[in-house]
Structures are given as structure tokens and as C-alpha cells.
């Protein structure tokens, strides 16, 4: 009994409840038609959200003012350069992956350098650096859409027993993220910094080293997402990362991570990613107009966040 009550105090449960509720509503509306296919699509697209949201979660947990706004530009730059370098050749797949990850790491390092050395607040630093990265992508590619190597495209769309392969891999990534957050010095350090940076420093947490690692990890994950997304959707485009800016933050917050920092959880990311996709699908299925859809999306997100923060926060 207390176990059941305990689970309702978890901040991440509301995103999952929301996801299941909108899925059931969609399935009821269509009388069960296509319910499993919708779920499969939600897992695929949710996986991309989770990759970027995982990095964003660690950044946001660092405390007030910490957020990475360069995610879309980083995705675009990594995706376009990797696709152009591979140029559809299967042998270049690992090279492309390394390039995407290296671009991500580089972007993260530049972001951190701006924050640390020039003492620019993270929001401004990552926003301004994103202009540079986006322009670099435009300059390098001029809107080029190069098809991904075929094996890579097949890999990102493959399914095992109806479950998208990419979703399985991102679940493993999420488990790793969970262990990193809750079971390592690094993860506890991130949470400690978010709760009180001075106390964390006095307690011997290597604040700057952890902040650097967090920004670099976040951008590297964005690079990975750009690489996989361009393989999945048949090529990279200059505007491919656009909707991942707000989504990455929304997924983190709906998932029950505190936007003020210091409290985070990984299970909520998956719940929130599925919820966001299923919510739009539900409203599309109902045939709601764009205006109604945006209003409802806003209201439902507010509802879930209020519900998630209703109980006392626990770490």
C-alpha cells in the first residue's frame, strides 16, 4: 500500500500517466485502430527527444540560468557535415559518427569556454554561439541534402518484434544516464551544484570540471541526435533541429526535473517524450484545428507540470 502511494510521489509518474491517458484517448477515438502502430511511431520519435533531453537535463540540473540553447544549431551542423562527409558511402559510417560526435564535443567546449572564460551567462553564451554554428552549417552546406548511407538508414528505421531498434538503444542510453545521475560522483556532483553551488564547492565537489563535462556531454548528445535524425529522415537539412530547442526543455520539465536545478530524474524523460508525441497525434486524430491544438497543448503541459510539482520534492 505504501509502495503504491510512494510511486505517486515520484515526480516522473505524471508524465507517464499523461502519456498513457492520451494514448488511450486516441485508441478509444479510433476504436483501437492503429493503436500499436501509433505506439511504435511514438517510440521512434520519442527516442530522438530523449537523446537531446538527456543532455539538457544534466545542464538544467546545474542550477538557475543553466540551459543549452545551441542544441538545434549543433544538431544541424553535426548532421549536415556528417552526411556530406559520408556522401552515401557505407564504409564511411563510423567516420561520420565520429565527426558528428567530435563536432558536438567541440560545440560543447566552445560553449563552456564562453561561459567560463568570458563569464557570459549560459543562456546568452549558448544562444549567441548557436548563431555561429548555424551560420557555419549554412556556409558549409548551402542547404545540401545528402542521402545517408543505405545501411545506416536501414539501421535507424529497423524494428525488432515491432519495437524500433533505435528506441531500444536509447533506452539503454537512458539507463546509463540514470546510473550516471544517481550512482556516480559526477552525477551527485551535478545535483549538489544545482542545489547550492557554494556548499558543493566547500564540500569538495570539483564544480568547474563538472560544469565543463556537462556542457560537452549535452552538445555531444545533440551531435549524436543530429547524426541519427538525418539518417532516419533521409538526409540532413538546415532547419532540421528547429523544434528540438523548446522540446528538449519541455521534455525535461514535464518529466519532473526541477527547472530551477538540483533535482533530476531520467524515467520522466521517456514518459514526457512519449507524452508530447502522443498528445500532438491525439489532437491531430481528433481533427482539432491548429489554434485549438496549441491552446490544448499548452494547457495540458501546464496541468502535468503542476501535478508533478504538487508533492514535496525528493531526491
Amino acid at each position: 500500500m505504501t509502495g503504491v502511494l510512494h510511486i505517486f510521489r515520484q515526480p516522473w509518474i505524471w508524465a507517464w500517466i499523461g502519456a498513457v491517458a492520451v494514448w488511450l484517448a486516441t485508441a478509444t477515438f479510433t476504436q483501437g485502430r492503429g493503436a500499436t502502430e501509433v505506439l511504435s511511431a511514438a517510440m521512434t520519435f520519442g527516442a530522438f527527444f530523449v537523446i537531446v533531453a538527456l543532455g539538457q537535463m544534466f545542464v538544467i540540473t546545474l542550477g538557475p540560468g543553466n540551459v543549452d540553447l545551441s542544441i538545434p544549431a549543433c544538431m544541424t551542423l553535426a548532421g549536415t557535415v556528417a552526411m556530406k562527409t559520408m556522401d552515401g558511402s557505407a564504409g564511411m559510417i563510423p567516420v561520420g559518427l565520429l565527426i558528428a560526435l567530435a563536432i558536438g564535443a567541440g560545440v560543447g567546449a566552445i560553449n563552456y569556454a564562453l561561459i567560463r572564460m568570458l563569464r557570459i551567462p549560459p543562456i546568452i553564451a549558448t544562444l549567441s554561439s548557436s548563431f555561429i554554428f548555424q551560420s557555419a552549417a549554412i556556409w558549409w552546406n548551402r542547404g545540401l541534402r545528402v542521402k545517408p548511407p543505405e545501411p545506416l538508414g536501414d539501421f535507424t528505421t529497423a524494428k525488432i518484434a515491432g519495437v524500433p531498434l533505435i528506441a531500444l538503444l536509447v533506452m539503454i542510453l537512458a539507463v546509463a544516464g540514470h546510473v550516471l545521475l544517481t550512482r556516480t560522483m559526477y552525477g551527485r556532483g551535478v545535483v549538489a551544484i544545482g542545489q547550492n553551488i557554494r556548499a558543493a564547492h566547500l564540500a569538495g565537489v570539483k564544480v568547474e570540471r563538472i560544469r565543463a563535462a556537462t556542457y560537452i556531454m549535452c552538445a555531444t548528445l545533440a551531435g549524436l541526435c543530429g547524426y541519427l535524425l538525418s539518417a532516419f529522415s533521409g538526409g540532413a537539412a538546415l532547419n532540421m533541429g528547429e523544434e528540438y530547442l523548446l522540446s528538449s526543455i519541455a521534455v525535461v520539465v514535464i518529466g519532473g526535473t526541477s527547472v530551477a536545478g538540483g533535482f533530476a530524474n531520467v524515467p520522466g524523460l521517456w514518459g514526457a517524450a512519449l507524452f508530447l508525441f502522443l498528445l500532438v497525434t491525439m489532437l491531430n486524430t481528433f481533427g482539432a484545428g491548429a489554434g485549438v491544438r496549441l491552446v490544448l497543448t499548452g494547457l495540458i503541459i501546464i496541468g502535468v507540470i503542476v501535478a508533478a510539482s504538487g508533492g514535496k520534492r525528493r531526491t
Binding site: 492503429g34 501509433v38 511511431a41 533521409g234 537539412a237 532540421m240 497525434t281 491531430n284 481533427g287 491548429a290
Partner: peptide, 22 residues
């Protein structure tokens, strides 16, 4: 059915994949 694809290839793919099963 009617979805918003924002004139972008990836957004359209996602929106169509969502509504298609129904």
C-alpha cells in the same frame, strides 16, 4: 486527416507517421 508539417521534411514525416495509423 490534416497535420501541420511546417514546410519541413522531418516535421512532416513525424506528423504523418503519427496520424497515419488512425
Amino acid at each position: 486527416g490534416s497535420v501541420h508539417g511546417n514546410w519541413a521534411q522531418d516535421v512532416s514525416q513525424k506528423a504523418v507517421a503519427g496520424i497515419l495509423p488512425s
